[in-house]
């Protein structure tokens, strides 16, 4: 069987912007505590974040939420620029970050148009007993290196090992396999799976919503189509990065009263 190509489908119509995924990720991946100073210095580390966009003004105001995480691009702009191969694409469609190889040039962070790479400006610290919660499956990073979403590669590796041990194939949507954010997402806005497996939920969603299975072209989208229009798109498609994350558009109604303006 072909190697898996891990990917995610994110339904913006379901995302409520609640940030549960953020905590799930922090808990799973030993992300250092973002102290208050880190926010004022603009250096918090969140492998997944919810971007909130405003639309209009009171009283006709709306807000949009887009969860953004590493897109694990097939043509990742961060990969060619790393001088030491600390980041590269592996045969499972993951954009890998090797912490112990990274020397911290931050070139990749500049290359990434999604702003999902985070730099450890400070030595991560867990006060006293809080260290007990650290996940032993994940490397604790030191200062001076980049880190980013790994699609919880430790879970993928563990599931793979287990399935090899038991001679079974990896189940689609296995909770042991899903990244922490997917398990934590209360509205099921995030779905994780293997794009190379045509039976997987993500493949089906991609086929249905993006059409022709490939990277869709929505440049002609004029914003006033029927609901049964395909909702899939890639984030910042114009950069040609071919991400492994498919977004589904938010559906919104234009009521008559709004149209009057």
């Amino acid at each position: 069987m072909a190697n898996p190509s891990w990917g995610m489908v994110i339904d913006n119509d379901k995302c409520t912007g609640c940030n549960a995924c953020v905590i799930a990720c922090q808990s799973e991946n030993n992300i250092p505590i973002n102290e208050e100073d880190h926010f004022t210095q603009r250096r918090p580390i969140q492998w997944i974040r919810i971007e909130r966009y405003w639309e209009g003004e009171f009283p006709n105001v709306k807000a949009r939420f887009i969860p953004v995480l590493c897109q694990h691009c097939a043509d990742a702009p961060c990969e060619p620029v790393c001088p030491v191969y600390a980041t590269y694409h592996n045969d499972q469609g993951l954009n890998v970050q090797v912490y112990n190889r990274c020397i911290g040039t931050r070139f990749c962070a500049n290359g990434c148009p999604y702003q999902v790479r985070h730099f450890n400006f400070w030595e991560p610290e867990w006060p006293d007993s809080l260290e007990n919660q650290l996940n032993p499956d994940v490397t604790v990073r030191t200062r001076g290196i980049m880190e980013k979403c790994t699609f919880c590669v430790q879970r993928i590796q563990r599931t793979k090992r287990e399935s090899e041990k038991n001679n079974t194939s990896i189940k689609d949507g296995d909770r042991q396999l899903n990244p922490a954010c997917v398990n934590g997402c209360a509205t099921d806005a995030l779905v994780f799976g293997d794009f190379n497996n045509p039976e997987s939920k993500v493949s089906k969603m991609k086929k249905k919503e993006l059409g022709h299975g490939g990277h869709g072209d929505h440049s002609d989208h004029d914003g006033h189509k029927e609901h049964d229009e395909k909702r899939g798109y890639h984030l910042l498609e114009e950069y040609g990065t071919h991400p492994s994350v498919v977004y589904l558009k938010k559906v919104d109604y234009e009521s008559k009263t709004v149209e009057k303006h």
Binding site: R42, R43, R106, N110, F119, F121, R143
Partner: peptide, 14 residues
């Protein structure tokens, strides 16, 4: 102390 002592931050890595 780490590069935290510089003024660099998330969008401006250089």
């Amino acid at each position: 102390h780490g590069l935290g002592v510089t003024g660099l931050n998330r969008p401006v890595f250089w």
